[in-house]
Amino acid sequence: MTALIDMASWVLLAGGAVFSVIGGIGILRMPDFYTRMHAASITDTAGMALMLAGLMLQAGLTLVTAKLVFIMVFLIITSPTATHALARAALHDGVRPQLDHDRRRHTEIEP
């Protein structure tokens, strides 16, 4: 049983590392600021969640796991808020997204 949990935790940790590196590659590869944000949200969701889940399995049912849960909840709430604030600020500042399709009904949402 312990070996099984250990194995699951290694898989989760490795998965988290792989996803965060993929996100890092995306941040370098993507063509403009707005598309880079999507790559960033990979490392912020999959990378973070898998890695913390792996650590949770290592810690078992202790206060450490409770702290890990709290870190995860906090990051899940703050990371979209920060991303949204960043995107909105960039759009207001006149950073133009490179778009293939633009289906916005109103030209721009006023500040």
């Binding site: 707005y34 949200s41 990371s79």
Partner: peptide
Amino acid sequence: NSVTLTPGTVTV
């Protein structure tokens, strides 16, 4: 926030 959290879409 859910839209932004999902990779591939960001609420601007």
